[in-house]
């Protein structure tokens, strides 16, 4: 039962990163690939009907974590206090920038929100990547299962690390790179003309830059957190996940070269899902790993709510999750296809 909810929470957050990831990525490359006002409006329209729904996956994933593993939610959210509040402020600025930017036609108004949108997207991608890095590296949990960690200490992983150290910054850079390529393929899939050309070129070149960054991360991973490999040694079937990630990455590069952007985008989705799957497989059954003492780790067993709570949750999750999938698929199908300059004038 605990395992089911571990998978459910991981899945919700993985879908969140895939979906909101492409609109973060779109935001990161926005200033470079979309140069005229019309191109910028087209870009925002490409994510306009869906970005808000994408963000709901974060809320729903957080809600599930709160319900199923209250202790881990409490410990993790209070431990990363400043970083999470920073995420909130960035999410706010970004949301407001998207919503307000095109409402007013003034030469100062639009550039202001353009930069806000782009910078907040970049920082969010880095921070979410660093967050995963923090989970992997571990945090200084005490015997009560709480921790408090500052933004930085010595920039080196150790028993008393900061939120930002060499390892987590490198996962942040990895995340920003992956998501900007992801966003570029999404934009290429949704647009035409010059905008399409630039997004496509960005994604194609970016794909090759990605490979050394991934290798660097994989190499440091073994030193930073050796316990992740235990599940792989015990259940070698898990090795299919990194294999799937490698295949997805290969397909993404291949389709990118062939100019098949839709296929490349889906390969990128699969690559991100598999990437999170790699972490989740190694991480199970932990929810937070302690850097001070392995017996302080928060696991799905010592953090879970009562058996009744977990079971009764199945009822509403069983009804709600298919509904959520249905809305999401329906939404994406309805707004499928390229956004064109004409579509800017037909919202009603």
């Amino acid at each position: 039962m605990e395992t089911f909810w571990f998978v459910a929470v991981a899945l919700m957050l993985a879908v969140y990163i895939v979906l909101d990831g492409f609109d973060f990525g779109t935001g990161i490359i926005y200033m470079f690939v979309a140069q005229t006002d019309e191109e910028r409006r087209l870009t925002l329209n490409a994510i306009g009907p869906v970005w808000n729904g994408n963000e709901v996956w974060l809320l729903a994933g957080g809600g599930l974590l709160f319900f199923a593993f209250p202790k881990a939610y409490a410990s993790g959210f209070s431990g990363f206090y400043l970083a999470l509040i920073l995420v909130l402020w960035l999410l706010m600025l970004r949301g407001i920038a998207i919503e307000l930017r095109s409402h007013l036609d003034h030469p100062l108004w639009r550039p202001l929100w353009d930069v806000t949108f782009s910078v907040s997207s970049l920082l969010l991608a880095v921070v979410f990547g660093a967050a995963i890095g923090n989970l992997v590296r571990g945090v200084p949990l005490n015997a009560e299962g709480y921790f408090h960690t500052p933004f930085w200490t010595s920039f080196l992983p150790g028993p008393e690390p900061g939120i930002l150290d060499l390892y987590t910054v490198s996962t942040g850079i990895l995340s920003a790179t992956v998501l900007s390529i992801h966003g570029a393929y999404y934009l290429a899939m949704k647009t035409e003309g010059d905008l399409y050309q630039r997004a496509h070129r960005f994604a194609k070149v970016g794909g090759w830059v990605l490979i050394p960054i991934i290798l660097l991360n994989l190499l440091s991973l073994k030193n930073v957190q050796p316990i992740l490999s235990a599940n792989y040694s015990a259940y070698p079937i898990g090795y299919t996940i990194p294999l799937a990630a490698a295949v997805a990455l290969g397909l993404m590069l291949y389709f990118g070269q062939k100019g098949r952007d839709t296929a490349a985008f889906f390969a990128s989705c699969l690559f991100i899902l598999a990437g999170i799957g790699i972490t989740a497989w190694g991480y199970y059954p932990n929810l937070l790993i302690s850097t001070t003492n392995q017996s302080y780790n928060l696991t799905i067993y010592n953090s879970a709510t009562s058996a009744y709570g977990l079971q009764v949750g199945l009822i509403w999750f069983g009804i709600g999750f298919p509904l959520v999938l249905a809305y999401t698929i329906f939404m994406y199908r309805s707004f499928w296809g390229k956004v064109t300059p004409a579509s800017l004038h037909e919202s009603y």
């Binding site: 809600g63 209250p70 959210f77 990363f80 009764v312 509904l323 809305y327 999401t328």
Partner: peptide, 30 residues
């Protein structure tokens, strides 16, 4: 709830986590 009221979340999450998670799943997506 988590950042500032961690102890409250830890103690009552098994109850109010239900309604908050349901809100996400049933209302926000809709």
């Amino acid at each position: 709830f988590g950042t500032n009221w961690a102890k409250f979340s830890e103690l009552t999450g098994g109850v109010i986590g239900q309604t908050l998670a349901m809100e996400g799943l049933f209302a926000f997506f809709l």
